[in-house]
Design a protein around this nucleic acid. Structure first.
Length: 430
RNA sequence: GGAGGAGUGGCAGAGCGGUCGAUCGCGCCGGUCUUGAAAACCGGAGAUGGGCAACCAUCCGUGGGUUCGAAUCCCACCUCCUCCGCCA
């Protein structure tokens, strides 16, 4: 959520932000109206409460022989005040709900303000390619989709996974299962060596956690919920990681906090019917190594550059060609002020596909989750960042496709060989 | 699942109907002393909202209730701890 003080002081900048996102700038004015109503009402209530408190104290003083007056009369007055207050307080509660209820509150429906550096645009068409690394592979032999390579070499099966669970699941076997584990370990080792603290969080989360992260109530249909239990399967480790210090006041020395976690992620993929129906690109359950940072506001932009570099390092280590894309205002997520996507080359599709998304969420999430830190004598909201470092299943798919050799086997990048028990090639008489 | 106990400010821990937003300690900040630091001594300091400010209101796990008045009494819920049972 945004700071209401920002909206009061500079409503025009928030209107512009909403316009640039293709959202309704009228939300700002409706919120300001409610806010003015709230402040006026709160002031009137405060005055009445003051009177009530004062009279009640006088009653107490009379009862204990320290004051003069007619206690009975005062009591009747206080009772009457209480009745008037009750109806005003009900009105206030209604106003609070209209502004601050996580489901319908207007303040929760206003997205983060994009950083001034973000290109203005309507959709992903207007995203900006920042740089490329590596040469997109072009074989003299036909490229193959990763699911074909995997099925042919006995590394994966969608058919068996469908029998066990349903569509949009994948089962890995033999060197395929090991490859997933190898990639996960390689990524975590890399990030830990670069100063991230490894976390293994629960992969179920409660309503409060998902609400603080903004997944609920808006994107409920994207989540799997446990029947008869107040739990949801996490769609990403960002959820538990950004919530670890919810409601806490941190010491300045605890920042910057760099966290990483490799977990399963669960997504309903509602609304994605017909898209990426084959293979491991879009499935209900996949592994992802996530990066999360909490930093002082002044370090936010540099921390984002660092996080993107950390995610890029994974792809460079795996010798996978990729490009970095900066999202335009229209494509930016609700929480984000700046987002860079990493897109890896898929030879079978002849294009780059998203494998990581790194966002600077400024204090938008930490204000909502009430995470603060002590900076000298003041309390501030740290900036939060999250990014994938990277999606393991999509990475496995990219390794298979980019390493395909003429004889149908797959050459593994050198960095993976130690993690694969010395095997450098998949499919060569395994 | 059964039986008890507990949730108070960064931590620890008193208070159990009215001068309690809350004692004392640790930690923190400022000062005195010191070449500097430590120790000692003196002083300061909770959070949120409103207000230019003085100041006012709210907050003692959460939500209700009783009362002129609730951290304190009552009810429900949540969480944690101990013991028993069950299980990895």
């Amino acid at each position: 959520m945004l700071d209401i003080k920002l909206i009061r002081q500079d409503p025009e900048s928030v209107r512009v932000a909403l316009r640039h996102r293709g959202d309704d700038p009228g939300k700002v004015d409706r919120l300001l109206e409610l806010d003015a109503e709230f402040r006026a009402l709160q002031a009137r209530i405060d005055v009445m409460r003051q009177e009530r408190n004062h009279k009640s104290k006088t009653v107490g003083a009379i009862r204990t022989g320290r004051g003069e007056g007619d206690a009975e009369t005062l009591q009747a007055e206080v009772r009457a005040l209480g009745e008037t207050l009750a109806s005003m307080e009900a009105e206030l509660a209604e106003n609070q709900k209209a502004r601050l209820d996580p489901t319908e509150g207007l303040l929760y429906q206003i997205p983060n303000v994009p950083d001034p550096s973000v290109p203005v645009g309507a959709s992903e068409e207007d995203n900006l390619e920042v740089r490329r690394w590596g040469e997109p592979v072009s074989f003299p032999w036909p490229a193959q989709p990763h699911e074909d390579i995997g099925e042919r070499l006995g590394l994966l099966s969608t058919e068996v996974a469908t029998r066990l669970a349903g569509s949009r699941f994948v089962l890995l076997r033999a060197q395929g299962a090991r490859l997933e584990r190898a990639l996960l370990n390689l990524m975590l080792d890399l990030h830990v060596a670069n100063g991230y603290t490894e976390i293994l969080p629960p992969t179920l989360a409660n309503t409060e956690t998902l609400t603080a992260n903004g997944n609920l109530p808006k994107f409920k249909d994207q989540l799997f919920q446990i029947t008869d239990w107040p739990f949801y399967l996490i769609p990403t480790a960002e959820v538990p990681l950004t919530n670890m210090h919810r409601g806490e006041i941190l010491e300045a020395a605890q920042l910057p906090m760099n966290l990483t976690a490799g977990t399963s992620c669960f997504r309903s993929e509602a609304g994605a019917a017909g898209r990426d129906t084959k293979g491991m690109i879009r499935v209900h359950e996949f592994r992802k190594v996530e990066l999360v940072k909490l930093v002082a506001p002044e370090d936010g932009v540099a921390a984002l550059e660092g996080m993107v570099a950390d995610a890029e390092r994974v792809l460079q280590t795996l010798e996978l060609p990729y490009r970095v894309v900066q999202l335009c205002t229209g494509d930016l997520g609700f929480n984000s002020a700046i987002t860079y996507d990493l897109e890896v080359w898929f030879p079978s599709q002849g294009k780059y596909r998203e494998i990581s998304s790194c966002s600077l969420c400024t204090d938008f999430q930490t204000r909502r989750g009430q995470t603060r830190y002590r900076d000298g004598d003041q309390l501030r909201h740290p900036y939060s960042l999250n990014g994938s470092g990277v999606a393991v299943g999509r990475c496995l798919a990219a390794v298979l496709e980019n390493g395909l050799q003429e004889d149908g086997t797959v050459r593994l990048p050198a960095a993976l060989v130690p993690y694969m028990g010395g095997h450098a090639v998949l499919g060569a008489g395994v």
